[in-house]
Amino acid sequence: MKEKVKRISDFEWLLPKGSRDKMRVDAKIIANDAVFGALEDDAITQLTNVACLPGVIEPVVGLPDMHWGLHSTGIRLSAP
């Protein structure tokens, strides 16, 4: 997925809605080169998943602290 991301500016990246099936809107990522370089493909895929949901408004925005896993911020699943 990462290869489909286009640079818009020094700190903004675009993943157009045609990048995969069923994406309803564009996704955008806020990141400098260092952060973008380290970004996992899975995290970008997850962002495109959100862009597939009904009634989503353009754009879905990935922030530079994005990482794969919806539930890894906060307390652990198994032992809250």
């Binding site: 995290a43 997850q46 925005v61 530079p64 602290d65 994005m66 990482h67």
Partner: peptide, 10 residues
């Protein structure tokens, strides 16, 4: 995750 998304109220 580190993302923001907005959805239509209707």
């Amino acid at each position: 995750m580190g993302a923001v998304s907005a959805f239509d109220a209707e």
